[in-house]
Design a protein around this nucleic acid. Structure first.
Lengths: 253, 253
DNA sequence: TTACTTAATGTCATTTTAACGTTTATGAAT
DNA sequence: ATTCATAAACGTTAAAATGACATTAAGTAA
């Protein structure tokens, strides 16, 4: 009976050894941004104040669930598809002097070794509203190119997520699960250009993505834009999954 | 003083919440094998007795180091390049009834939630000798196609590693870091065929891999083979790294 | 109505890909 | 020494894909 009470309490505690960090890429049609939080009790150094949203995991949570919860708790973002990109477990990652104040103020066991599982997503910034809470004082979109330094090993985690995003984007078209359900090809092209930091010819891009035959062209077009309205497309689920499955049999590198 | 003693003891303890599992692919020129261990105190069911080599992590270890240690302790394999492919953290993954006996006999805290980081490698089987020890009674190469079931979520982990290997192989030529330093193109081709489970035309393969211009053709040839001896190749490090860097700027999917 | 802005589109030369069979060079057996 | 078996190495052709390039179409704002 008293054993059972102890067990329930354990399940409601954050595990001091396991955390998740979320890299949320935001796109505004021009460049990639990353969602960072300002945490309470930070030093005055504005640059290093920004951190990836992250926190410890409950023992009853699977990792994906934990990432969604943490993201919601710190930034207010919900209903976002999160994909795991790696684990970070250097014991020294929490030993930087400048990171100690925050650790000591927020963690019950600030000296515990922490393994962090990284999750990432990609969203259209204008579709979401940020609501920072818990130990997140602010939540902001920072242009990726302006991020030069982050606390702990967050800069390393960020770079790993970029690399993962790029690798994935080379294997399959970007957007499935990540972009909004309907999108314009121009939006998609600009996203590719932002990810690879390279200009792509529009005619070539359209030919290639359309020839993949994984998109459905909608009847709907943009409205209220001071230029020719673009047509919306969406992924055809059956065709996309067939393309992915077939992909394994195609010899290429 | 007594604090310091306590600290050192903690660092020498296995962390009950964090483990690593190793998926070692072995290649014999025909098909992929996976290195599995038979563990002590197993049930008689031979199929489910096999498991991936894995164990808990020390708090002073980074994850890669831990994977190398665990692999060495359980199988005797050393000097193997290990690459991380994912984290597995479903709280229910250790709750299968048939897995309890082993957990209880080997783990000091068999009910702790465990997050496992998966590492994989690919080796030429004939280059290594297995030496099982610790709780590994046997270590064996099992053909990948014969593996239908594994304890815990090891089958899921195995499938994830295969998928990761395939994805990587679509982005860059296989072998760098993984294959032995020198290898024949025929060996490489057969490896591709094994990974993708698809026949590849030799002429097409050779043209493509050679045109990548990341390999150096050696003067050395096979010896003691009852057929025309194949020429050895090796990766040219400078060219390979240049190819990888350039790859990011190439628009393709 | 005009100006501005961006969406959508096709052609051509070059490169890459998919499909296909024969010659060459070893070790083993006779 | 010769034969056999085995796999290594190799080129051609038609089709598909790629890279480079500019003009017309459709909305809003002035």
């Amino acid at each position: 009976m008293s054993r059972e009470i102890i067990k329930k309490e354990i399940n409601n505690q954050l595990n001091p050894n396991i955390s998740v960090d979320c890299v949320i890429f935001g796109f505004d049609g021009k460049e990639l941004h990353v969602l960072l939080i300002d945490r309470e009790n930070e030093l005055k150094n504005v640059v290093s104040a920004h951190a990836l949203p992250g926190n410890l995991v409950y023992d009853h949570e699977n990792l994906n669930m934990a990432a969604e919860r943490v993201l919601k708790e710190l930034t207010g973002l919900t209903s976002i598809y999160l994909e795991q990109f790696g684990a970070f477990g250097d014991p020294d990652r929490i030993k930087k002097k400048e990171d100690q104040p925050w650790l000591k103020s927020v963690r019950t066991n600030p000296n515990a070794r922490v393994v962090t599982i990284g999750y990432y997503s990609l969203i259209r910034m204008s579709d979401y509203e940020l609501n920072p809470s818990s130990f997140a004082k602010f939540a902001k979109w920072i242009p990726l190119k302006e991020i030069l330094n982050l606390p702990f090993d967050h800069f390393k985690i960020l770079n790993s997520s970029i690399e993962y995003l790029r690798s994935n984007t080379k294997i399959r078209p970007i957007g499935y699960n990540l972009l909004p359900e309907k999108f314009t090809l121009n939006e998609m092209q600009k996203l590719y250009e932002a990810i690879f930091n390279k200009k792509i010819d529009n005619r070539n891009f359209r030919r290639k993505i359309i020839n993949l035959d994984v998109l459905d062209k909608l009847a709907e077009k943009q409205e209220g834009v001071a230029h020719k309205p673009a047509t919306f497309y969406k992924f055809n689920v059956v065709k996309y999954e067939s393309y992915i499955e077939k992909g394994f049999f195609k010899f290429e590198f």
